[in-house]
Amino acid sequence: MNIVLITLGFAFALAFVIGLILGIFKKLFEVPVDPRVVAVRDALPGANCGACGYPGCDAYANAVAAGQAPVDKCAPGGKAVAENVANLMGVSASAEDVVAVLLCQGVKDKAPQKGEYVGVKTCRAAKISTGGTKLCQWGCMGFGDCTLVCMFDALHMGDDGLPHVDYDKCTGCGMCAAECPQLLFQMAPKARVGSVVTCSNRNVIKANVMKSCKVGCIKCEACVRACPEKCISMVNGIPVTDYSKCTSCGICVEKCPTKCYHLLETIEGKPVVVRKSGVDAAPAEV
């Protein structure tokens, strides 16, 4: 009984003394923290994904409060967070919510390998050592480097050898776009209005493109001619859509002979929103 009492007494006394000392020293050594750091940190999502270029949300909040970082760097938070942070810092933000789109549809049976690749099974290693494992040197090699860097579980390798984006989860942080050695991910508006060419083959010789991939862009420029809004232009051998003009009419999709033009709405087989010009969104059947 005595031992229990001694232990209790001693533990209480020790805890009291330590608590007192720690409390005093905390006040004594208190570092004044910029209240804006705390406020900005609270406004951030706290995913610590690193898309902003800082080691985590804390570091980014510090940089923002110190005026060293722009307020709209948080991609997962998107527009809402950028506006909140901008309000806290008293500046204006211009951020648009985006999602990642894979610009390649060279599935296993459509885009052949140029040989059997034996080596480190990462896209980056394969790109450095062989310049791409497929006949199409721009195509997705399918080792899934992008799926490893996705912090939001939004990228998964499909059985067809390509990564698939889960648009319920994609926050548009852009980590996959930064990781892909083929630069195959493009950040598209989250509203997903507009058309996109899901091919990155820059080869201008039609025969070569057709040999390396059955669904590659053959540079016929039918889309450029057909677009009623004149919003498609050829950039480095690939048609590029100007989203400020595109109305998602779908004419380019119909005209494309190799079926590599798609509307952003229908990518991944999930039409989220069908938009007619002027009429606002109505959810469509999947």
Binding site: F10, A11, L14, L22, F29
Partner: peptide, 20 residues
């Protein structure tokens, strides 16, 4: 008991000190 408490408090204290 005492060693754990004292070391933990000590590390906290050092952390305060270094931060400042």
């Amino acid at each position: 008991l005492v060693f754990i408490l004292v070391i933990a408090a000590l590390v906290q204290l050092v952390e305060f000190f270094l931060k400042k």
